[in-house]
Design a protein around this nucleic acid. Structure first.
Lengths: 148, 148
DNA sequence: TATTGTTATACTCTATAACTATA
DNA sequence: TATAGTTATAGAGTATAACAATA
Protein backbone atom coordinates (compact mmCIF):
# COMPACT_ATOMS: atom_id res chain seq x y z
CA UNK A 1 0.00 0.00 0.00
CA UNK A 2 2.93 2.25 0.66
CA UNK A 3 6.66 1.97 0.04
CA UNK A 4 7.32 1.64 3.77
CA UNK A 5 6.14 -1.81 4.84
CA UNK A 6 8.01 -1.60 8.15
CA UNK A 7 6.20 1.60 9.03
CA UNK A 8 2.90 -0.03 8.08
CA UNK A 9 3.57 -2.94 10.39
CA UNK A 10 4.37 -0.63 13.27
CA UNK A 11 1.29 1.46 12.62
CA UNK A 12 -0.92 -1.60 12.40
CA UNK A 13 0.48 -2.90 15.66
CA UNK A 14 -0.07 0.38 17.43
CA UNK A 15 -3.59 0.60 16.00
CA UNK A 16 -4.35 -2.82 17.47
CA UNK A 17 -3.15 -1.71 20.88
CA UNK A 18 -5.31 1.37 20.69
CA UNK A 19 -8.29 -0.84 19.97
CA UNK A 20 -7.59 -2.52 23.31
CA UNK A 21 -7.54 0.84 25.05
CA UNK A 22 -10.64 2.00 23.26
CA UNK A 23 -12.59 -1.12 24.16
CA UNK A 24 -11.67 -0.64 27.80
CA UNK A 25 -12.25 3.10 27.82
CA UNK A 26 -15.70 2.93 26.31
CA UNK A 27 -16.86 -0.14 28.20
CA UNK A 28 -19.91 0.65 30.25
CA UNK A 29 -20.23 -2.57 32.24
CA UNK A 30 -17.60 -3.31 34.83
CA UNK A 31 -19.14 -6.48 36.19
CA UNK A 32 -17.42 -8.74 33.67
CA UNK A 33 -14.06 -8.80 31.93
CA UNK A 34 -13.27 -8.84 28.23
CA UNK A 35 -11.85 -12.33 28.55
CA UNK A 36 -14.96 -13.60 30.32
CA UNK A 37 -17.15 -12.15 27.58
CA UNK A 38 -14.98 -13.62 24.88
CA UNK A 39 -15.24 -16.99 26.58
CA UNK A 40 -19.03 -16.74 26.76
CA UNK A 41 -19.06 -15.83 23.08
CA UNK A 42 -17.16 -18.99 22.23
CA UNK A 43 -19.48 -21.13 24.29
CA UNK A 44 -22.47 -19.52 22.63
CA UNK A 45 -21.17 -19.85 19.10
CA UNK A 46 -19.25 -23.09 19.38
CA UNK A 47 -21.16 -24.98 22.05
CA UNK A 48 -19.59 -26.87 24.94
CA UNK A 49 -15.84 -26.72 25.40
CA UNK A 50 -13.30 -28.40 27.63
CA UNK A 51 -11.32 -26.23 30.00
CA UNK A 52 -8.16 -27.10 28.09
CA UNK A 53 -9.66 -25.93 24.82
CA UNK A 54 -10.94 -22.70 26.29
CA UNK A 55 -7.52 -21.99 27.76
CA UNK A 56 -5.86 -22.53 24.39
CA UNK A 57 -8.43 -20.45 22.52
CA UNK A 58 -8.25 -17.53 24.93
CA UNK A 59 -4.51 -17.72 25.30
CA UNK A 60 -4.54 -18.14 29.07
CA UNK A 61 -3.41 -21.01 31.28
CA UNK A 62 -5.53 -23.82 32.61
CA UNK A 63 -5.51 -22.56 36.19
CA UNK A 64 -6.56 -19.11 34.99
CA UNK A 65 -9.38 -20.71 33.03
CA UNK A 66 -10.50 -22.71 36.05
CA UNK A 67 -10.84 -19.49 38.03
CA UNK A 68 -12.64 -17.72 35.22
CA UNK A 69 -15.14 -20.55 34.82
CA UNK A 70 -15.60 -20.64 38.61
CA UNK A 71 -16.57 -16.99 38.64
CA UNK A 72 -18.87 -17.37 35.65
CA UNK A 73 -20.47 -20.38 37.34
CA UNK A 74 -20.94 -18.45 40.57
CA UNK A 75 -22.92 -15.87 38.64
CA UNK A 76 -24.99 -18.45 36.87
CA UNK A 77 -23.61 -17.60 33.42
CA UNK A 78 -21.88 -20.91 32.80
CA UNK A 79 -22.09 -24.48 34.06
CA UNK A 80 -19.87 -27.53 34.18
CA UNK A 81 -20.93 -31.03 33.28
CA UNK A 82 -19.09 -34.33 33.10
CA UNK A 83 -17.59 -35.40 29.79
CA UNK A 84 -19.09 -38.85 29.17
CA UNK A 85 -16.18 -39.83 26.95
CA UNK A 86 -13.39 -38.84 29.37
CA UNK A 87 -13.55 -39.05 33.14
CA UNK A 88 -10.83 -36.47 33.57
CA UNK A 89 -12.47 -33.77 31.54
CA UNK A 90 -15.42 -31.50 32.19
CA UNK A 91 -17.51 -29.64 29.67
CA UNK A 92 -18.27 -25.98 30.13
CA UNK A 93 -21.64 -24.73 28.89
CA UNK A 94 -23.26 -21.34 28.66
CA UNK A 95 -26.54 -20.96 30.53
CA UNK A 96 -29.65 -19.01 29.51
CA UNK A 97 -28.63 -16.29 31.93
CA UNK A 98 -25.20 -16.28 30.31
CA UNK A 99 -26.76 -15.86 26.90
CA UNK A 100 -28.84 -12.98 28.17
CA UNK A 101 -25.75 -11.28 29.59
CA UNK A 102 -23.91 -11.87 26.34
CA UNK A 103 -26.73 -10.41 24.28
CA UNK A 104 -26.69 -7.33 26.46
CA UNK A 105 -22.95 -6.99 25.92
CA UNK A 106 -23.20 -7.38 22.17
CA UNK A 107 -25.84 -4.70 21.94
CA UNK A 108 -23.82 -2.36 24.07
CA UNK A 109 -20.70 -3.02 22.03
CA UNK A 110 -22.50 -2.48 18.73
CA UNK A 111 -23.99 0.74 20.03
CA UNK A 112 -20.57 2.13 20.95
CA UNK A 113 -19.08 1.15 17.63
CA UNK A 114 -22.01 2.59 15.73
CA UNK A 115 -21.57 5.88 17.54
CA UNK A 116 -17.96 6.14 16.50
CA UNK A 117 -18.57 4.84 12.99
CA UNK A 118 -21.18 7.51 12.45
CA UNK A 119 -18.56 10.18 12.97
CA UNK A 120 -16.27 8.75 10.30
CA UNK A 121 -16.57 9.65 6.66
CA UNK A 122 -17.93 7.22 4.10
CA UNK A 123 -14.52 6.16 2.86
CA UNK A 124 -13.36 5.24 6.37
CA UNK A 125 -16.53 3.32 7.04
CA UNK A 126 -16.21 1.39 3.82
CA UNK A 127 -12.55 0.65 4.47
CA UNK A 128 -13.32 -0.77 7.91
CA UNK A 129 -16.08 -3.04 6.70
CA UNK A 130 -13.95 -4.15 3.76
CA UNK A 131 -11.18 -5.11 6.17
CA UNK A 132 -13.46 -7.23 8.35
CA UNK A 133 -12.67 -10.60 6.76
CA UNK A 134 -8.99 -9.80 6.77
CA UNK A 135 -9.11 -8.95 10.48
CA UNK A 136 -10.70 -12.30 11.22
CA UNK A 137 -8.16 -14.11 9.09
CA UNK A 138 -5.36 -12.34 10.86
CA UNK A 139 -6.45 -13.01 14.42
CA UNK A 140 -8.17 -16.34 14.10
CA UNK A 141 -4.80 -17.94 13.87
CA UNK A 142 -4.04 -21.59 13.37
CA UNK A 143 -2.91 -22.69 16.82
CA UNK A 144 -2.45 -21.56 20.39
CA UNK A 145 0.31 -21.56 22.95
CA UNK A 146 0.25 -21.76 26.75
CA UNK A 147 -0.39 -24.89 28.72
CA UNK A 148 1.36 -25.73 32.00
CA UNK B 1 -21.14 -2.34 2.52
CA UNK B 2 -23.86 -4.92 3.03
CA UNK B 3 -27.55 -4.75 3.64
CA UNK B 4 -27.07 -5.95 7.22
CA UNK B 5 -25.47 -3.08 9.13
CA UNK B 6 -26.36 -4.61 12.51
CA UNK B 7 -24.55 -7.80 11.62
CA UNK B 8 -21.56 -5.76 10.46
CA UNK B 9 -21.42 -3.94 13.77
CA UNK B 10 -21.53 -7.17 15.72
CA UNK B 11 -18.84 -8.71 13.53
CA UNK B 12 -16.62 -5.68 13.84
CA UNK B 13 -17.02 -5.72 17.61
CA UNK B 14 -16.19 -9.37 17.84
CA UNK B 15 -13.20 -8.87 15.55
CA UNK B 16 -11.89 -6.20 17.90
CA UNK B 17 -12.19 -8.52 20.86
CA UNK B 18 -10.32 -11.21 19.00
CA UNK B 19 -7.53 -8.74 18.35
CA UNK B 20 -7.23 -8.42 22.13
CA UNK B 21 -6.97 -12.18 22.46
CA UNK B 22 -4.53 -12.44 19.61
CA UNK B 23 -2.26 -9.76 21.02
CA UNK B 24 -2.18 -11.58 24.34
CA UNK B 25 -1.83 -15.03 22.86
CA UNK B 26 1.11 -14.13 20.65
CA UNK B 27 2.88 -11.89 23.13
CA UNK B 28 6.32 -13.24 23.87
CA UNK B 29 7.33 -10.94 26.72
CA UNK B 30 5.56 -11.34 30.05
CA UNK B 31 7.59 -8.78 31.96
CA UNK B 32 5.36 -5.85 30.99
CA UNK B 33 1.67 -5.33 30.39
CA UNK B 34 -0.09 -4.01 27.31
CA UNK B 35 -1.17 -0.93 29.25
CA UNK B 36 2.36 -0.24 30.42
CA UNK B 37 3.64 -0.50 26.85
CA UNK B 38 0.89 1.74 25.57
CA UNK B 39 1.81 4.27 28.22
CA UNK B 40 5.48 4.16 27.26
CA UNK B 41 4.46 4.64 23.65
CA UNK B 42 2.58 7.81 24.52
CA UNK B 43 5.49 9.16 26.52
CA UNK B 44 7.83 8.41 23.64
CA UNK B 45 5.65 9.92 20.95
CA UNK B 46 4.06 12.76 22.89
CA UNK B 47 6.73 13.66 25.43
CA UNK B 48 6.10 14.30 29.12
CA UNK B 49 2.62 13.79 30.50
CA UNK B 50 0.89 14.43 33.78
CA UNK B 51 -0.50 11.46 35.65
CA UNK B 52 -4.01 12.80 35.14
CA UNK B 53 -3.52 12.98 31.39
CA UNK B 54 -2.09 9.50 31.19
CA UNK B 55 -5.01 8.15 33.17
CA UNK B 56 -7.50 9.78 30.81
CA UNK B 57 -5.64 8.64 27.69
CA UNK B 58 -5.34 5.05 28.85
CA UNK B 59 -8.82 4.92 30.27
CA UNK B 60 -7.75 3.95 33.78
CA UNK B 61 -8.06 5.77 37.09
CA UNK B 62 -5.47 8.01 38.71
CA UNK B 63 -4.60 5.52 41.45
CA UNK B 64 -4.13 2.80 38.85
CA UNK B 65 -1.85 5.13 36.92
CA UNK B 66 0.15 5.97 40.02
CA UNK B 67 0.83 2.29 40.56
CA UNK B 68 1.70 1.72 36.92
CA UNK B 69 4.16 4.61 36.90
CA UNK B 70 5.62 3.36 40.18
CA UNK B 71 6.36 -0.01 38.63
CA UNK B 72 7.77 1.54 35.47
CA UNK B 73 9.94 3.80 37.61
CA UNK B 74 11.15 0.87 39.70
CA UNK B 75 12.39 -0.75 36.50
CA UNK B 76 14.05 2.38 35.28
CA UNK B 77 11.75 2.76 32.29
CA UNK B 78 10.09 6.01 33.38
CA UNK B 79 10.84 8.88 35.73
CA UNK B 80 8.92 11.58 37.55
CA UNK B 81 9.90 15.23 37.70
CA UNK B 82 8.25 18.28 39.23
CA UNK B 83 5.99 20.40 37.08
CA UNK B 84 7.48 23.90 37.36
CA UNK B 85 4.13 25.47 36.54
CA UNK B 86 2.06 23.55 39.10
CA UNK B 87 3.25 22.39 42.50
CA UNK B 88 0.60 19.70 42.70
CA UNK B 89 1.47 18.01 39.44
CA UNK B 90 4.33 15.78 38.40
CA UNK B 91 5.55 15.07 34.91
CA UNK B 92 6.20 11.52 33.79
CA UNK B 93 9.03 10.96 31.32
CA UNK B 94 10.31 7.95 29.46
CA UNK B 95 13.96 7.07 30.09
CA UNK B 96 16.55 5.77 27.64
CA UNK B 97 16.08 2.31 29.10
CA UNK B 98 12.36 2.72 28.59
CA UNK B 99 12.91 3.66 24.96
CA UNK B 100 15.08 0.59 24.50
CA UNK B 101 12.41 -1.64 26.00
CA UNK B 102 9.78 0.00 23.81
CA UNK B 103 11.86 -0.49 20.69
CA UNK B 104 12.24 -4.16 21.53
CA UNK B 105 8.49 -4.44 21.94
CA UNK B 106 7.73 -2.70 18.65
CA UNK B 107 10.06 -4.98 16.78
CA UNK B 108 8.56 -8.04 18.38
CA UNK B 109 5.04 -6.83 17.64
CA UNK B 110 5.86 -6.03 14.03
CA UNK B 111 7.47 -9.43 13.61
CA UNK B 112 4.36 -11.23 14.85
CA UNK B 113 2.09 -9.19 12.63
CA UNK B 114 4.32 -9.68 9.63
CA UNK B 115 4.23 -13.42 10.16
CA UNK B 116 0.46 -13.48 10.12
CA UNK B 117 0.17 -10.95 7.29
CA UNK B 118 2.38 -13.10 5.14
CA UNK B 119 -0.13 -15.91 5.32
CA UNK B 120 -2.97 -13.74 4.08
CA UNK B 121 -3.72 -13.23 0.43
CA UNK B 122 -2.96 -9.97 -1.35
CA UNK B 123 -6.54 -8.72 -1.13
CA UNK B 124 -6.66 -9.19 2.63
CA UNK B 125 -3.32 -7.49 3.07
CA UNK B 126 -4.41 -4.54 1.00
CA UNK B 127 -7.72 -4.27 2.84
CA UNK B 128 -5.97 -4.16 6.20
CA UNK B 129 -3.54 -1.47 5.20
CA UNK B 130 -6.31 0.51 3.58
CA UNK B 131 -8.26 0.39 6.82
CA UNK B 132 -5.37 1.69 8.89
CA UNK B 133 -6.38 5.36 8.93
CA UNK B 134 -9.97 4.43 9.65
CA UNK B 135 -8.88 2.30 12.61
CA UNK B 136 -6.99 5.23 14.06
CA UNK B 137 -9.91 7.56 13.49
CA UNK B 138 -12.23 5.12 15.20
CA UNK B 139 -10.18 4.50 18.31
CA UNK B 140 -8.44 7.81 18.78
CA UNK B 141 -11.67 9.21 20.06
CA UNK B 142 -12.33 12.77 21.16
CA UNK B 143 -12.39 12.44 24.95
CA UNK B 144 -11.94 10.04 27.81
CA UNK B 145 -13.90 8.99 30.85
CA UNK B 146 -12.79 7.86 34.32
CA UNK B 147 -11.44 10.15 37.00
CA UNK B 148 -12.33 9.61 40.68
C1' DT C 1 3.59 -42.14 31.52
C1' DA C 2 0.78 -38.51 29.72
C1' DT C 3 -3.24 -35.70 30.07
C1' DT C 4 -7.13 -33.06 32.48
C1' DG C 5 -8.20 -30.31 35.84
C1' DT C 6 -7.74 -28.26 40.42
C1' DT C 7 -5.49 -26.14 44.43
C1' DA C 8 -1.81 -23.19 46.43
C1' DT C 9 0.59 -19.08 46.06
C1' DA C 10 2.17 -14.64 44.41
C1' DC C 11 2.10 -10.52 41.67
C1' DT C 12 -0.02 -7.18 38.42
C1' DC C 13 -3.86 -4.45 37.27
C1' DT C 14 -7.83 -2.15 38.32
C1' DA C 15 -11.39 0.10 41.18
C1' DT C 16 -13.40 3.02 45.10
C1' DA C 17 -12.68 5.78 49.16
C1' DA C 18 -10.09 8.74 52.01
C1' DC C 19 -6.31 11.71 52.45
C1' DT C 20 -2.50 15.53 51.56
C1' DA C 21 -0.83 19.38 49.26
C1' DT C 22 -1.36 23.01 46.14
C1' DA C 23 -4.26 26.27 43.20
C1' DT D 1 -13.52 24.91 46.96
C1' DA D 2 -11.45 22.39 43.30
C1' DT D 3 -7.65 19.87 41.39
C1' DA D 4 -3.34 16.67 41.28
C1' DG D 5 -1.63 13.01 43.21
C1' DT D 6 -0.93 9.39 46.69
C1' DT D 7 -2.11 5.85 50.05
C1' DA D 8 -5.24 2.20 51.74
C1' DT D 9 -7.86 -1.57 50.63
C1' DA D 10 -10.19 -5.12 47.99
C1' DG D 11 -11.07 -8.06 44.11
C1' DA D 12 -10.25 -9.92 39.34
C1' DG D 13 -6.95 -11.88 36.30
C1' DT D 14 -2.88 -13.99 35.35
C1' DA D 15 1.24 -17.00 36.08
C1' DT D 16 4.10 -21.03 37.91
C1' DA D 17 4.40 -25.13 40.73
C1' DA D 18 2.56 -29.08 42.85
C1' DC D 19 -1.05 -32.31 43.13
C1' DA D 20 -5.12 -35.79 42.18
C1' DA D 21 -7.60 -38.49 39.10
C1' DT D 22 -8.09 -40.71 34.83
C1' DA D 23 -6.37 -42.38 30.22
Amino acid sequence: MTDEPAADLAALGRAFEEIVTWLRRTRTATDISVTALSLLDRLDVGGDHRVTDLAALEGITQPATTGLVNRLEARGWAARSADPSDGRASLVTITDAGRARLREHREDRSRRIAERLASLDAADQAALLAALPALRHLTTAPAARPTT
